[in-house]
Amino acid sequence: MRGFEEAVARVGRLPRDNLNEYGFDPFGFSPDFVARIAPLAHVVYRRYFRAAAYGIEKVPTGRVILVANHSGQIPIDGMIIACAMMLDAEPPRMVRSMVEKFVPALPFVSYFMSRTGQVVGTPDNCVRLLERDETILAFPEGVAGISKTFSKRYQLQEFGHGFMRLALQTRSPIVPVAVIGGEEQAPSLYNSRAIARLFAAPSFPITPTLLPLPVKYRLYFGEPMRFKGDAEAEDRQIEPKVRSVRSTLQALVHRGLRERRHVFW
């Protein structure tokens, strides 16, 4: 029960100066709504996944882009990072992550995402959020990361360049975040492209688990990385910067794997 109260109290410490008189930001985010689900976040984060965040104090104040490896078939990794920033960071922060473009058309899911601060992943939305000094979460591997099979676990897939252009345009620091545990929560043996096409879904993993397994999640936050340059530059000029983030993140992932003694505790 103390955990519940603490979780709610931490949500209560979120800044309110960027909200309107009814407690919403222009994107529809509502700390009051988040406070209502904070106890659930506490249970999932602390009890079910027994998550641990290392180096979270390295996240600088003000605008920042968290760049993480993507895994686990369903985006629980994003939720874990968001819980960490809310329940373990000082002061608590709300992570704004990007959702797929079909999400606003889904009943219930649409407004749940909106009230919890998640926005459709258009470049314009990201820029606006960063200019409001928000914390953005990006998975540069995209679907290729989350839907990879168990045999490719913890191998970073190709990175998109969008996050780097955003960082350059808005002069935002990048903090790499290695997520350890996600690959084992729902091991995918096979990704059926045929079925995915049938449902117009990005992937259709074949996994033996119905619910994500109660693996222990570990998050490793790296040092902030700052880049300078033209956001509109050619791909070949952006590429080396992206590669340096990718290799830093891969090293962080390897460190996390080395330090891990067991998947479940």
Binding site: F27, T122, N125
Partner: peptide, 9 residues
């Protein structure tokens, strides 16, 4: 549209 950016210019 579902895929609209939040603030259309």
């Amino acid at each position: 549209r579902a895929d609209n950016t939040q603030f259309i210019t």
